[in-house]
Each structure stands twice: as C-alpha cells, then as structure tokens.
Amino acid sequence: MDVNGNVLTTDERNTRVVSFLKLRIVEKRKAERRMVEDYRTNNVIQAALTELDRHNEERGTPIIHL
C-alpha cells in the first residue's frame, strides 16, 4: 500500500524493492570506503592491528589451528 492507502501492483512493489536494494548497495559502498579511510586514519584500529600483528609474530603465524 502506498502513503495514500492505494494497493500497489506487483510491478510497483518490485520497483519499490529494487529502489530500496539499489540504495542499500550505495550505502554499503559508502561504508566500505569509510572502512578503508578509517583503517588508515583511526588510531584505535591501528592500535588493534598492531596488537594483533604482535601476537601473530609471537606465535610465528597468523593462523590458529583449532
């Protein structure tokens, strides 16, 4: 149903969903770009990675055998 209470046709609902998914994908791409930028500039992330690398170096490998 649209904002005026009219029942949407199958095609109209499909158009609505496709628009929604396209928007989600645009947002996802923005989030991915932010992740790359944050990785370079965010001190918390850099500190966490340094710590991870230190543990990996102590272990001699980044792989954990379960």
């Binding site: 992330i45 990996n56 980044p62 954990i64 379960l66």
Partner: peptide, 23 residues
C-alpha cells in the same frame, strides 16, 4: 568444524568491527 582460522581482533565500537591479517 574448520581446522584453522586466522587470528582476529574485535574492536568494541559502533559499528562493531573485526580485523584479521592473512598469510
């Protein structure tokens, strides 16, 4: 059950974030 995974780190921020480095 997998036999091996990469060591990962959790960053408690919003959004919740995990990092790992591969071989």
């Amino acid at each position: 059950h997998p036999s091996s995974i990469y060591s990962y780190v959790f960053i408690d921020q919003e959004p919740a974030t995990y990092l790992f480095r591969t071989i």
